[in-house]
Design a binder for these strands. Sequence first.
DNA 1: GCCAACGTTGGC
DNA 2: GCCAACGTTGGC
Length: 154
Amino acid sequence: MRYWLIKSEPDVFGIDHLAKAKREPWSGVRNYQARNSMRDDMRPGDLAIFYHSSTTPPGAVGIAKVAGEAYPDPTQFDAKSEYYDPKSTKENPRWMLVDFEFVAKFPNEVTLQQMKEDPSLEGMVVLQKGTRLSITPVEAKHFKRVCKLGGWKE
DNA sequence: GCCAACGTTGGC
DNA sequence: GCCAACGTTGGC
């Protein structure tokens, strides 16, 4: 089982949206590395830290679970969608996604600042300077530590 | 295949 | 709103 961190802007789709929806296709990812993670490396049952970006304060707010295998992101074929990609075809889709399922909201948000200041989280990809990736792998020890800081027990 | 221009992300 | 970082595009 692998661990991940997924970023989302709470104004667009936050942990409360996921809690309400229960399950959500992670559409709109238009970055090849992030796509590759979903397409090639995620397996049903993998757990992800749900992270709020572009908000005050940014930080980890909960846990989501990979709910199924990867499949083509339907928004790439929708000319009315902001995620429409005219260069993608159904025969050869460019963008793949997985569904995420709500697992938990942390009793306490773990802010980015807290994460940066915690020595045991050193080396986490999301904390490295210049990391803009919306999906990053997380080591098991870092995952467990963030859950602990968030007050959540698996 | 290089690289300048451009667009986006995301913390501050 | 600023801007550093960095991914993508497209001309050559």
